[in-house]
């Protein structure tokens, strides 16, 4: 899990060229949707939606058939039909777990965006502050969240607060570093122009540097939104509240101790779907905000 965080952060750190990292992050279906907007819906379905759908159906069919033929016990390796059945039987619990995790992830993500952007602005306002503080931000971010989590539980108490805090911590850094890169990459000529027209520091920040950093901020948000789901589930493992209010992470631990493997699969898939939906939402937001003027959204 930590490796994931580090490598994902590596993209904006090394690259600096945000357009490519945005492109890389774009999920294939979304990208194609934008590109084929001129074609007819039927044609779009045939060329862009049908092929992956066929692959999915083939994959599920093969999975179902192979397990059925080999007669593997469901608690070792459930078939798709077992998973659907388990999800349906525990439908209510699953829904509650999903809802809890969504709330935690969204809260953690929201805090990471607000504080990440705000902190980046503070750093960008002064080179001296940036130079003296940013290295520590990098060091802090390399400390594995799993190692920090118990301390967070001690400080915030087991439960919602600690989980949101963990989701926040995991999602915070990509936003911070991306925003900072964005704020610092304003074209020199543009900055000169603002200077020549006697713009104040705040005017330069609000009217030039933040809008210019928006593509970077959104790229950071695309990384962080999925991470916040991961963070919430990790938080639930460590600081999870049990009983009826438990999130997906808690449900997964319970399912695994009871060998309810099919339900465990259902929880895991729900988490994955949640991450994807979250990403697609942010991606749609990004395309909407940048649509008219930024290359990543126009050519994407």
């Amino acid at each position: 899990m930590e490796k994931l965080v580090v490598s994902v952060n590596g993209i904006p750190e090394q690259g600096g060229v945000e357009a490519t990292s945005v492109q890389k992050l774009e999920p294939a279906p979304q990208k194609r949707k934008a590109g084929a907007s001129s074609g007819s819906p039927l044609r779009k379905f045939a060329t862009h939606i049908a092929p992956p759908l066929i692959v999915l159906i083939l994959f599920l069919g093969f999975w179902e058939l192979a397990i059925r033929l080999a007669d593997v016990k469901p608690y070792l390796f459930p078939k798709p039909s077992d998973i659907v059945k388990a999800a349906a039987e525990n439908g209510h619990n699953l829904l509650v777990s999903v809802r809890t995790t969504i709330v935690e992830a969204v809260l953690g993500f929201a805090f990471s965006v607000i504080l990440g952007v705000a902190f980046a602005i503070v750093l960008a306002l002064s080179k001296t502050v940036e130079r003296s503080v940013y290295p520590y931000a990098i060091i802090l971010q390399t400390i594995p969240i799993v190692a920090v989590a118990p301390i967070i539980v001690i400080w915030f108490g087991a439960g919602m607060n600690a989980i949101v805090m963990i989701a926040f911590l995991i999602a915070f850094f990509p936003i911070l570093s991306n925003t900072l890169i964005g704020l610092n990459s304003t074209e020199a000529n543009m900055k000169n122009l603002f200077y020549l027209y006697n713009a104040t520091k705040w005017q330069t920040i609000w009217k030039l540097r933040i809008p210019a950093a928006l593509p970077y901020i959104l790229a950071g948000m695309k990384i962080s939104c999925s991470l916040s789901v991961v963070g919430a589930i990790v938080g639930e493992y460590i600081a999870g509240i049990g009983g009826l209010q438990g999130g997906l992470g808690y449900a997964i631990t319970v399912a695994s101790t009871r060998l309810q493997t099919a339900y465990l699969f259902a929880c895991g898939l729900s988490a994955a779907v949640m991450g994807i939906v979250f990403f697609l939402l942010i991606n749609a937001l990004s395309n909407r905000l940048l649509r008219s003027w930024h290359d990543s959204a126009i050519n994407g």
Partner: peptide, 17 residues
């Protein structure tokens, strides 16, 4: 500070948004 000077660069330096 007198706002009597204006500039045009080789690049158009327009705000794209």
């Amino acid at each position: 500070k007198q706002n009597e000077i204006a500039f045009v660069f080789q690049e158009h330096t327009l705000l794209p948004w």
